[in-house]
Nucleic acid binder design. Structure first.
Lengths: 334, 334
DNA sequence: ACGGAGAGTTACAACGTTGCAGAAATACAC
DNA sequence: GTGTATTTCTGCAACGTTGTAACTCTCCGT
């Protein structure tokens, strides 16, 4: 049922290698030979065995993208862009879901990496440089926060600046009791720490005192966590007049909780998020947010990986900061 | 840097095959030999070369999941469940994005399938049975609408019944001018046709005349399409008092358009969707919808595939209808 | 006619792994 | 103590492909 080079060769009356040459587009094949071979390929519906080709070549044509959770819209959108960018290099993308645990991420790094993939684009939450070292030379591009001393290429946005800017925007609206939702103390919470730093920097810049009670932690960054954190803030009676949520799903949850509490957005409480996911453009109200250039991040990641697999094999690790902008919508308008 | 069985064998002072036996958990290996080999494996950080193993075994341990678009929440949620279910079989899931075009789906089927994957879970929009035949024996499980005469296992929900039930629910609220959003005339629109059939059946059952002007097409089923369709309905002056959207993202777009038009949901217009995506539980208002059991669909798909790779290799194709229920929320409450 | 260049084709080995058959060592039965 | 299982380990071949090197054949210039 499934045919091999040998079958094609027999049918076309040539050697196995000649068929291989035709399949790989080698130049010096006589036109009539090529035609005979192609006829045989078509007749037998021959497809190369990629495992064998990979074994021989040491390349698989597959790269992996490992993200914490696929059904967080930010990662789903990112995944779409990575798949698109990878297609330009004729790569297939193996999308892997780590669950954000260090165990799973380690497995994504070492386990999957084994020999099935040529490179890895990893959006780590919990990974340490030790885990990374265990890759033993598999080219890796990291997205998001820095892994300390990691010897890998790295793409990020300036989280502190972005958080500072959007907090400053809320201050510019005249708000003074600005809450933050999404803080995390765990080692995984690198993004949370940076965004919190931007938040406090903006407050300090405007001469507003930092109030611990206005900062709500969130174990994960899902809608439910955002809603719970918002409810908690409202219940403690610290009446914020604005909220900066560390990502958009938190913000959507917060919108929901505010709605249930009968508060108007943005009149009573302005809300800002982070990530610019599709939902935020259709939510009620639409969501003001920090918009990273996801398409560019994905493209850069694929290109860095391509470099590592090609000429830049041994060049020093690169660190790229991609631009972002504020998307000002109804929840905290201009 | 990257070691092979041979390197481990030399270090442990045994044959290559013995190392292979240890790696594969073969029983009859003396304890001290096993220990020596394991020490060597650890010391060299040996990892099997999967390409070689696959070549030898004819199995790859990778299954593919092909969906039209990853950033449609329904598919992202489904993907998460499939990844989880596949992990129980020690399978890695290669997630593939087809874009919904028949060309891409064909490629997902034939191109990717070549020898890299053991099986395919495909959520087709445009695939015909011819495309399916081109797979030449690759086990496939189809999700969603029927591919005519396809010789593959198939999991679906009863779209007609589900659409009829939720439309009947709207009728039960006393609504009489019930619009539908999402109809499609293209060959890809199988789901749309079935849901439309359920909608018309419910109207007929209640003695309500079908009004063509209340049925709005949507080229795709994104939020933007839902919003555009809703705006169109409102602009034509046919004042619906309820809308059944053929999926949740359409419904979220419709909610947005209704909000912009100053109409209250559900007081002025009740809204229902289809899919029960996470967003719908936090939107304002929360979304009444048809809830398929995505976790079960994913688990069944993986199990059917496991069967095809094992004992049920040649059993006749199975067709499974999974249950659904109505999730009644604020946009069209009980 | 002869040498040389290049086009066209081929045989062979290797990529790293595992199934098979069997050798060597050990245990067991009588 | 001999014969028979059983455990433990090994060498070889094969999975399907491609790189290397070599071979044949044609064509050209002299």
């Amino acid at each position: 049922m499934r045919h091999r080079l040998k079958d094609v060769a027999e049918r076309a009356g040539v050697s196995v290698k000649t068929v291989s040459n035709v399949v790989n587009g080698y130049q010096h094949v006589r036109a009539d030979t090529r035609a005979r071979v192609e006829e045989a390929i078509a007749a037998l519906n021959y497809r190369p065995n990629l495992s064998a080709r990979n074994l021989r070549k040491g390349r698989t044509g597959v790269i992996a993208l490992a993200v914490p959770e696929l059904d967080i819209p930010y990662f789903a959108e990112l995944a779409r862009h990575v798949v698109t960018a990878a297609a330009d290099h004729d790569w297939t993308v193996l999308i892997h879901q780590t669950g954000g645990g260090s165990e799973q991420e380690r497995k994504a790094a070492s386990g999957i990496g084994d020999h099935m993939i040529d490179g890895l684009i990893l959006s780590p939450l919990a990974l340490t440089s030790d885990d990374l070292a265990a890759l033993h030379g598999l080219p890796v591009v990291l997205l998001g926060e820095r892994v300390d001393n990691g010897p890998a290429d790295h793409i990020m946005i300036d989280n502190v600046a972005a958080a500072r800017e959007i907090t400053a925007h809320l201050i510019g609206l005249g708000r003074r009791r600005i809450a933050a939702i999404g803080s995390q103390r765990t080692p995984e919470g690198a993004s949370a720490r940076l965004r919190l730093a931007g938040y406090t920097a903006a407050l300090a810049g405007a001469g507003i005192a930092y109030d611990d009670r206005l900062v709500a932690p969130a174990p994960a960054w899902h809608r439910a966590d955002g809603a719970a954190a918002m409810r908690h803030l409202l219940a403690t009676g610290v009446r914020p007049d604005a909220v900066f949520c560390f990502n958009d799903t938190l913000a959507l949850g917060a919108l929901r909780a505010l709605h249930e509490a009968g508060l108007r957005v943005p009149e009573d409480v302005a809300v800002a998020g982070f990530d610019d996911i599709e939902d935020g453009r259709f939510s009620i109200p639409t969501l003001t947010t920090v918009a990273p250039d996801k398409e560019r991040i994905a493209r850069l990641a694929v290109e860095l990986l391509a470099g590592r697999l090609g000429p830049d094999r041994d060049s020093p690790p690169r660190e790229l900061v991609t631009p972002h902008h504020l998307a000002l919508r109804e929840s905290a308008p201009l």
